[in-house]
Structures are given as structure tokens and as C-alpha cells.
Amino acid sequence: MNPPNWLRAIGRISLWVWAVLGLLFLFAPIFVTVVYSFNEPNGKYNYVWNKFSLAGWSDPFKYPELTDALIFSLKIAVTVTIIATILGTLIGLAMVKYKFRAKGFIGAILILPLTMPEVVLGFSLLTLFVAVNWSRGFVTIIIAQVMFSVSYVATTVRARIRGFDWRLEEASLDLGASPFRTFYKVTLPLIAPGVVAAAMLTFALSLDDFIITYLNSGLENTFPIQIWNMKRSKIPVQINVFSTALLVISIALALLLVVVNNRRSRKLAGLAA
């Protein structure tokens, strides 16, 4: 009834090979992004490998429009992360801690933006801005990005803080702490890992987003929009330099978060012992 051992071994090996190929598929473009930051392209487009050079890294700010766009993107990302993390965390808390009618409805509203193509979300928001004659720029980009980020934050926070022991808050209140002090000293430390994870996700989503932002940006250029606008004139190596730098910083931050979380849970385990 069971297949012979040699056949099962082949099956197992080919499964592994297939999975490794899948990982390579995911990894290849990232590898290319990094490697091509050391290219010295022959012409204006950094598409074909010419020769190794540190020119891009020694002059990263050669194209002020690209640098400005990156700074603008970072400003947007910080603003969006702050607003969306607060709004989304409040919703996540409400969904986990309270029972109320219409919870299912609110949950559905939160999922809905994730089931729509970005081009529809972006274009419908644009029709609203056009209808009320609102010129596009920094504010409309913030509005658009917070709109889709709130759902991600609420969902992430909700998943991470489910099943917590909220009696800790009651204990704090019973011992005479003010609600504000209770939130600051008890609730916040409890939900912090979930909130930090959601904030990092929002920051990444903000830097990553192109379609919704592009449709509602007016004349302002984020980093991706600037690349989009340059695509017919030049694709300089500095795009790869900035992307590689961001990649390295993100990996470092993610590792830091893992270390901090490990230390925290070890400390908590120590307290419990």
C-alpha cells in the first residue's frame, strides 16, 4: 500500500529542491538590486552589467531630485506610521477588549480595503478629492496611505494582543492608579510588541506603496514616483544604492527587534520564576 522507500526519498528530495528554487526566485531580484548598486552602467540605464565600480556609493546624492524624493518618502512614512499606528491600535484594542454589537460589521469594513485592487482604492479616492476640489500633495498622500494602513495595524494589533490578561488593568485601577497611569504603566507595555510590529509594517508599506500614492500625489514625488517619472530618461545606479542602504537598515532594525523581544521575554520569564 505504501510507496517504496526509494520513491519516498525522491519525493522528499524533489520537494526540498522545489522549495529552495522558490526561495531563489524570491531572492534573485534582491540580490540583483544589491549587486547592481556596484555597477558602472554603459549609458543612462542601469540594466546591463558593465563593470564593478564604487561610483554610485561614493556619490549617492548625485541626483538631487532622487535624494529629495527619498527624504519626502521618509517624511511621509514617519507621519503615516504615527497616525495609522494610533488609529489602528485603538480599533484593535476595542475589538479585543470589548463585546459590542456590530463588531462583525467593523471587522468586515477593516478587511474590505484589503480585498480591493489598489488602483480602485486610489482612483476612487481621487474622484473624491476632485469632487471637493482638493489639490493633491502631501496631505492627500497622508490621507491615502493612512486609509489602507489602518486596516493592517488594527488586524496586526488584534492578532497579537488576543488572549491577554486584562485583569492587570483592573488590578492597577483597584490599587488607585489613574486610568492614564494605568494605560501608561500597564496597558502600553502589554501591547507594545504588537504595536511596534504594526508600526514597522506600516512604515514598510508606506515606503513600498506606489499605485495609491501615485494617483493621489499631484506634483509631489515620493521615491517610487520619482523612479516612475525617470524611467524614460535615466535609471541611475543611485536608485540601487539607496535601495540597498534601506535594505541593510531594515534588516538591522528587524534583527534589533528580535534581540529586544528575546531579552524582554527572558526577563519576563525570570520575573515569573
Binding site: L26, F27, A28, P29, I30, V32, T33, Y36, N46, Y47, V48, A204, L207, D208, D209, F210, F223, P224, I227, W228, I235, I239, N240, S243, L246, L247, S250, I251
Partner: peptide, 16 residues
Amino acid sequence: LPFFVTYLVRTLSWKI
């Protein structure tokens, strides 16, 4: 990991 490189740059790397 791919999410740490912005969407447009990832797609440009496919072009390469």
C-alpha cells in the same frame, strides 16, 4: 525579504 526593497525597484530588478 523582498518587502524590504520598494516595489518599483524590485520590478526594475526583474527588468535587469
